[in-house]
Amino acid sequence: MFRAIRPAALYRSAALYKTAPAVVARNAMALNFARTYASAGLARSDVEKRVLDILAGFNKVDANKIALKANFNADLGLDSLDTVEVVMAIEEEFSIEIPDKDADEIKSAEQAVEYISKREDAH
């Protein structure tokens, strides 16, 4: 009986996440096929897009200046505390925890993408 109602319930719980539709779809799939193994890494273009989307969601950032190579501080005009917040948003997006040592080194979207592609547990 429980098995019969399970997929629907899982979809419902997945729909509760207030995240981008793409993420919801991925979560729903992960829940439905709980026994499949992690997919082979993230596509770089996908990572780039998600990182840039995070930057675009920051209201202190001028949308026209957002670029992969843009330095958070020099080009986007973010101060050190804003940078901490951006890096933390990236952590949340990819469900990873970046240690202080590495987080200090991330100063542009490109460096963030670089770091995430090295992390195998990012998804």
């Binding site: 505390l81 901490v84 917040e85 890096v87 933390m88 202080d100 987080a103 200090d104």
Partner: peptide
Amino acid sequence: ARQSVIHLYRDFQR
């Protein structure tokens, strides 16, 4: 000192 402030800020926000 600046670096440790940033670390403290990160810890708090996290």
